[in-house]
């Protein structure tokens, strides 16, 4: 174990770059996924005919596949049908496909958790179904969704590491390159320990925040 060699300034800067790529890719993906997940989850909740069944099939299929498969598919298979994506774009696309399906379920069950009495009261006060959905159900449901969405973001941050298979220059990828700089593998433990601590620092803080929000709500 060579801590001094492994933690040279150059290596640390390189590892930090990887960490920023992880954060960047995860952040963009969660924003996009929230957007698509909100549409899909709401359509399924509202039971829009045909569309909601189609979405259900799509969501269940995606949720039941390994993310690694989706990443592989996006980067290596889609070019065969003429869709060529760069590494970062492919990683974001794959993560967004997978996370949108996950988030749509969180959003749907958040909407479903709102008491039926609220809907009945709103409807009998003269609001239309769409008005009830957007002004009564959605605002209450969104607040309840925050903790599970934060947990999902933690998974996403961890799952971004799977993009090493398409050589996305994220944290694990860069850690591996630094590890390769030592002929005898003496950098492995120090570098991977540091990488693990970086993931832990971000994810543990997020999970504490999620728990706090949960406690405050109940």
């Amino acid at each position: 174990m060579d801590f001094i060699g492994a933690y040279s300034q150059e290596h640390l800067a390189f590892l930090w770059d990887g960490f920023l790529v992880t954060l960047y890719v995860a952040f963009i993906s969660i924003i996009l996924s929230f957007f698509f997940g909100l549409i899909a989850g709401t359509l399924r909740y509202a039971k829009v005919p045909v569309l909601s069944q189609l979405i259900a099939v799509l969501v269940e299929t995606i949720r039941n596949l390994p993310l690694l498969l989706i990443i592989f598919f996006t980067f290596f298979a889609l070019p065969e049908i003429g869709i060529k994506l760069e590494i970062t774009a492919a990683a974001i696309t794959a993560l967004t496909i997978f996370e949108s399906a996950m988030l749509s379920e969180i959003i749907r069950s958040g909407l479903k958790s709102i008491d039926k009495g609220q809907i009945e009261a709103a409807r009998s006060s003269g609001l239309s179904y769409t008005q009830t959905l957007f002004f009564i159900v959605m605002p209450q449901a969104l607040r309840r969704m925050v903790p599970p969405i934060v947990s999902q973001f933690i998974s996403l941050l961890k799952d971004t590491s799977l993009a090493v298979v398409i050589a996305l220059p994220e944290l694990i990828h860069n850690a591996q390159i630094i590890n390769g700089q030592s002929a005898d593998g003496s950098y492995f433990f120090p570098i991977f320990l540091l990488a693990a601590l970086m993931y832990f620092a971000v994810n543990y803080s997020l999970s504490l925040a999620a728990r706090r929000l949960e406690v405050r709500q109940t």
Partner: peptide, 20 residues
């Protein structure tokens, strides 16, 4: 600790790290 680090990292520890 385990819940907050990626599975891939743990896998690499066993595959690339342990031989050291």
């Amino acid at each position: 600790f385990i819940r907050n680090i990626p599975l891939l990292l743990i896998t690499f520890v066993f595959y690339f790290g342990l031989p050291n």
